[in-house]
Each structure stands twice: as structure tokens, then as C-alpha cells.
Computed example of a mutant assay.
Amino acid sequence: MNQVHTNEAAAELRENYRKLIEEKPMRIRNAAAALGVSEGQLLASRVGENVIRLKSEAQAILEQMEPLGKVMALTRNEDCVNERKGVYKNYNFSKHGPMVVGTFVGADIDLRLFMNHWNFCFAVTDQVQDRTMRSLQFFDKSGTAVHKIYMTDESNLDEYEKLVERFTSDEQPCWIEVEAYDPPAAPPEDGEVDWQKFRAAWEAMRDTHDFFPLLRKYKVDRQQAFRNVGDDIAYPVSNDASKRLLEAARDKNCEIMVFVGNRGCIGIHTGPVQKLVERDGWYNVLDPDFNLHLKTTSIANTWVTRKPTEAGHVTAVEVFDAEGELIVTFFGKRKPGIPELELWREIVAELPREEVTA
């Protein structure tokens, strides 16, 4: 698509977006879906208005985050949003095969980053009622958001403006060319897998990070593994388990870990949950520095899993949508080498079991 056509397409998209939100105000992600484009494309169409295209140097941008002070880190997928306020500290980036993996490990901002999926970078200024919202937003090659960083009342806006100026791209196109991801390869039939050997490998794990390589080695997906490994270490529970465990964590003052991710980023909250609100098919944690928004109407399957580590087994509650995509994972608060909380195990043990179905 040449420059003239892209400018025309962007202008048409901007106008359609304006009409749409005048008729029915909605979030940009929902508006993009309604208009048949990616969120990244819709955001790019606003370049020159309240959006600035940044250089495609996401790692370098992230390495400059700490001077911005207290911000809000937003990581989401289609059905769950993790919003955590804090300071970006202790970054580390390293190469693992072809993938550049990054981490921020702090008491508040705790992230796992898969940088090969960070393609498009923007600085955005939005007017929401009487508030000016400034953010840095990052998208993968398909135009899907992988991470967003919002300024708060406690952020250093001078440092934010310096960072935006430093990374503003020389070119400011109002269109991005997106590329769809290939669908995942189909897993083998259950009967083609040596489940006895798979279980032995599961039991031999010494770290929860060994689990993904185990799935990859046997070319199976998560729920296929859970169905076949044995119900003493993986079993389904009621799909209201997320609500039940959050309420129990609140009532029993049990600190938990909440992992919400997409292909480019995993956002982690560690700590208590207090204010729980259910509204319009979403279950929400609305605490001062941590918000979680879980679309309960999208939950198709929920599993309890027990994975061995050198400090004893780790118990997780893993929540999936109808397509088998992982929505959110819950753990008890823990650190490597330290056994998990007995209180968390008690909470999980009280979740109603379901029958295993293919």
C-alpha cells in the first residue's frame, strides 16, 4: 500500500472511529474489533493528533523507565487485565536461543518479557473526562497490544517527556502494516503420546520453568497434558474457582500471585487482594495499587495443577477460554527455594472438583 493510499485509509479509519465512539463510547480495543482492524492500526491512524510514533527500540525504552517513577503497568489478553502500580526496577535482558527475554523484578512491577514480539511503539495522550492520560504503548506484529505503561499522579512527567522526545521516530506514518501469526501446530492424538514417560518427566521437574520445555518436547498442549497425567497432580475444578479463591484469599488474608500474559509479556502481582467487585460479566480486584479484571463469561475450563520443585510441589489454578488459551494463573505467594504457603494449599483444596472431559 503506497503512502497516498495509507494516508487515505488512515483518514477513513479515524473518521469511522470518531463516528463509532460518538454513537457508543467504548475502549479502543473494542472499537478496533468493531471496525475490523487491529488496535495497533487504529492507534497508528491517530499519529499526528494525540499519538506519536516511537522508534522500534522497545528494549532501550524499557531500560529508561525507572526515572519515570511510579507508573501503572498494564498487561492483558482478550479476557483478563492486570494493572499494577509501581516503579520499573532491576531490569535484565538476555538471549535464549532466538528469543530475547527480559525481566523486571521488583516488589511492585514484576514482568517477564519476550522481546521478539515487541514491534510497534507509541506515546499516547488521551483526554478522559477532565484527566489527561499519558502512556507508552507497545504492540506485536499483528497489531495486538503486548504492554502499556500509564503515567500516574506520582510519575515524573518531565522524565516522560524527555523519554518521548529521545525516542520519537524520524518518520511519523499514520499506518502500520500488520502480519498475522501462524496458527499453532495441532498436538498429537492422545494415543500417540507415551503418557507414562511424560508423567515420569513431570515428576522429575525441579523448577516450574521446566514445564514449558516439557510440553514442547512432547508437542502436547497444556490441557491435553492435564487430562492425561493423572488426577493426583492435575484435575479440573468448577469454573467459579477464580472467584472462590480470590474471596478466600481476601477473607483469610492469604497473599497470592496472579499471572496474566500474552505472547509478548507476562504481568505478575504478588500480595493481598482486598476489594472484590463483580460487574457486567467481569470479576474485579480494585485495590489502590493492583487492579485485576477477569471476564468470567469467557472461562471454559479451570484446572488445579501440582508441579514439583526443589522446595516441594507448587500448586497452581490455571484458567482457560474455549479455544484453550490460558487466561490467568493463580499461585500462593512464594519465592524460589521456599515452600509455598500451607494456607494457599488449604484454599485450593476447598475448590469443587469437576469430572475430566476430553
Rank of each mutant, 00 (worst) to 15 (best):
C174R: 10
E177K: 12
V178I: 15
V178G: 09
E179I: 10
Y181C: 05
D182T: 04
D182Q: 13
P184Q: 11
A186W: 04
P187S: 08
P188N: 01
P188H: 12
G191H: 14
E192Y: 08
V193G: 06
Q196E: 12
K197Y: 12
F198G: 05
F198N: 00
F198Y: 03
W202D: 02
W202P: 05
E203K: 14
R206M: 04
F212Y: 01
P213H: 00
L214V: 08
L214I: 04
L214A: 02
K217L: 14
K219D: 15
V220N: 10
V220E: 03
V220W: 11
D221E: 13
Q223H: 12
Q223R: 12
A225G: 11
A225E: 03
F226E: 03
G230V: 07
G230Q: 00
D231Y: 08
D231N: 14
D232T: 06
A234T: 04
A234N: 06
A234C: 04
Y235T: 11
Y235G: 08
P236S: 06
N239A: 06
D240C: 02
A241P: 09
A241T: 08
S242C: 04
R244T: 14
L245C: 10
A248K: 13
A249T: 04
R250M: 08
D251R: 15
F259T: 04
F259Y: 10
V260M: 07
V260N: 00
G261I: 09
R263G: 00
R263N: 01
C265V: 08
I266C: 06
H269K: 08
G271S: 14
P272H: 08
Q274T: 15
Q274S: 15
V277C: 12
R279Y: 15
D280T: 09
D280M: 15
G281D: 06
G281L: 11
N284E: 09
V285Y: 03
L286N: 12
D289G: 13
L292K: 06
L294K: 04
L294H: 05
